[in-house]
């Protein structure tokens, strides 16, 4: 049911039955390494190209999610998947072998929440019993699509972020499934907010206003205050973007610094890993939520969180044509009790 301007209340509160995450070598050197379920030390993951590697990472992650719940792929009703590559090829080639009805999504780095949102709406409406939402990203395949060849010797701007090599997936089921899993209670799809930032090496600044807009709309629509949540987790605003988000809320007289976390900031250790402003990419929120935050919810260290994946909806073509970067953010409220 739609409430307020843009939020949907899920009366039937679907559950996130389980999650699965897989990361690459660089993410394993980061502070969250112990939370990720699967990892590979080989950026090619035994494949011939980075695109194939990304697809395989996603496939391995989804296979693991299905297998660890004692299911087979025939049990899954639908899958929502997306990635950063042109025409969403990582998802398409991953799902080619799975034989599950598939919705391909593109919301740049916001795709994980977009998928989670749509999957939970499907389950909430009773159209499906088991739906998977998954996304992936790969540093090397993103780098070659959006930036320079890997072996080109250049310096990154200090505001730049580093695409994570990772995939995360979540299995959504109706609430009557017997399991001690967190519920999805509200979803707030975001509007595109574009403040005219054109610098592709400063995506945090381009996306922060959209995160602000979506979080604010969510709070207004639900009538909740900021301290209702134990944590508000943004996707990949990075260090500068997170800072901007805090400033924007400060203008409203709200202090979010205590409860705000950003997956892009959490995934790397910026001093030792030379990742400038932190991680980014579809896989960033997917893996950090599936690995770290889901674990926190299960162990009841956190009980009410709002995850807000942010995306920058530009392409190299639009950037070269001088367009600014449209930002988007989708919010999903996840709670242990309803």
């Amino acid at each position: 049911m739609k409430i307020g301007k843009q939020t949907i209340k899920l009366e039937n509160t679907p559950k996130i039955l389980n999650t699965s995450s897989m990361v690459g070598p660089k993410e394993m050197q980061g502070p969250l390494s112990s939370y990720f379920e699967l990892h590979t030390d080989d950026i090619f993951f035994g494949e011939k190209s980075f695109e194939k590697a990304e697809s395989k990472i996603m496939k391995t992650c989804v296979d693991n999610l299905i297998a660890k719940n004692g299911l087979s792929k025939e049990d899954i009703d639908y899958i929502f998947a997306g990635d950063l590559l042109n025409q969403c090829i990582s998802s398409a080639y991953c799902i080619r072998d799975l034989n599950i009805p598939f919705f391909g999504l593109y919301g740049a780095c916001s795709t994980f929440c977009e998928g989670l949102m749509l999957a939970s709406l499907f389950v909430n409406a009773g159209y499906a019993q088991k739906v998977i939402a998954t996304t992936s990203s790969h540093f090397c395949s993103a780098e070659r699509q959006f930036r320079m060849p890997l072996e080109h010797g250049n310096q990154l701007s200090p505001t730049a972020q580093c695409t994570v090599t990772a995939s995360g997936s979540a299995l959504i089921v109706p609430k009557d499934v017997n399991s001690d899993s967190p519920y999805i209670t509200y979803v707030t799809p975001g509007k595109i907010v574009d403040m005219g930032i054109k610098d592709m090496t400063n995506m945090g600044a381009a996306m922060a206003p959209s995160a602000y807009s979506t979080i604010k709309a969510h709070l207004q629509d639900t009538g909740r205050s900021i301290d209702y949540y134990d944590a508000i987790v943004t996707g990949d605003l990075g260090i500068i973007g997170s800072d901007i988000l805090k400033d924007l809320f400060k203008e409203d007289g709200l202090d979010i610094s205590e409860i705000h976390n950003d997956c892009g900031v959490l995934i790397y250790d910026k001093d030792s890993q030379d990742t400038h402003c932190g991680g980014s990419g579809c896989g960033c929120m997917a893996s950090v939520f599936s690995g770290y935050f889901y674990e926190q919810l299960k162990t009841k260290k956190l009980n009410k969180i709002l995850i807000v994946a942010t995306g920058a909806l530009m392409s190299p073509v639009s950037s070269q044509q001088g367009e600014s970067i449209p930002g988007i953010a989708h919010a999903v409220a996840i709670e242990n009790e309803v």
Partner: peptide, 15 residues
């Protein structure tokens, strides 16, 4: 947009 971009420039750590 102008105010925001000036604000971002101030925020951005310089090389």
């Amino acid at each position: 947009d102008k105010e925001y971009s000036d604000y971002v420039d101030k925020k951005a750590t310089n090389s």
